[in-house]
Design a binder for these strands. Sequence first.
DNA 1: GGCAGTCAAGTACGC
DNA 2: GCGTACTTGACTGCC
Length: 296
Amino acid sequence: MRIGYPCINRSVGCSGNHTFRLASYSEDRLVETVGRNLACLERMLRYNVEHGLLFFRITSDLVPFASHPVCRLRWQDHFGPALRRLGRFVKRHRMRISMHPDQFTLVNSPDRSILRRSISELLYHCDVLDAMELTGRAKIQIHVGGAYGDKPRSMSRFVRRYRRLEPRLLRRLVVENDDRIYTAEDCLGLSRQCGIPVLFDVLHHEVNPGGDAIASLLGRCAATWRRRDGLPMVDYSSQEPGARRGKHAETLDIRMFRKFLRDSRPHDFDIMLEIKDKEASALRALAAATDDWRLK
DNA sequence: GGCAGTCAAGTACGC
DNA sequence: GCGTACTTGACTGCC
């Protein structure tokens, strides 16, 4: 078990999420922004190693507009040495990396142009991880997509489209249950058809439940990950008290987390804490898991 | 310097 | 068919 957090670190004093408006796009602006983002990514990774947080999600904003037609720069080449160096750092410290394209990436959209843009976006994410020379254990997590008024048909479309993706995408993609449409049980059904590993999201499951209890689902999701995929990944958050259902907590409820650790045994996985205060909660989670045999 | 409105991209839903 | 909520941090223009 590794413990981590997504994209942003509030302690290191820099942001790796710099972007800009499409209207102000220029190659100089892109190079300058990506340079700043990579410099901050390195600081966050160093912080993580120093603090024992060995799981990290890299922001999709690392290279703004990378999949947009406006971007003509071969950023993979331009920043190749820097990305390789970061990849070596990750491997040296046995860290785990993931990425999570945003809601506009829809493999199962009936609209071919949305599919085309989604594949470009997936390839961008893949390019980042490939340029870092990370193995297939570095994952890109996506949701199934929309229901489009016919959920079974939209699930079949996902399977069909998924099977046609190129191998370098297939080795990285995993599917995650969402908080409104596709449950963990739905994702397991997709996995049976096309073999995609299932990433279990604890809060999404609580908001949009389906099938078994958490412990059983963790085991069934874990069984969809092959040796070459690495340890299963799990997204963990809890509900912010008094807020809209499904809203991520501002800070980790340590009692609930301890209960989750107990209930999830004996399954082992890497856990991403999707909590607003980021590394602060991740550190508390790490402390809470100190005595857990699963912790790396 | 601070603030409010806006931002590439989509879906779902209410009217 | 149109407008809006969803979700979120950063950018941008305006004061």
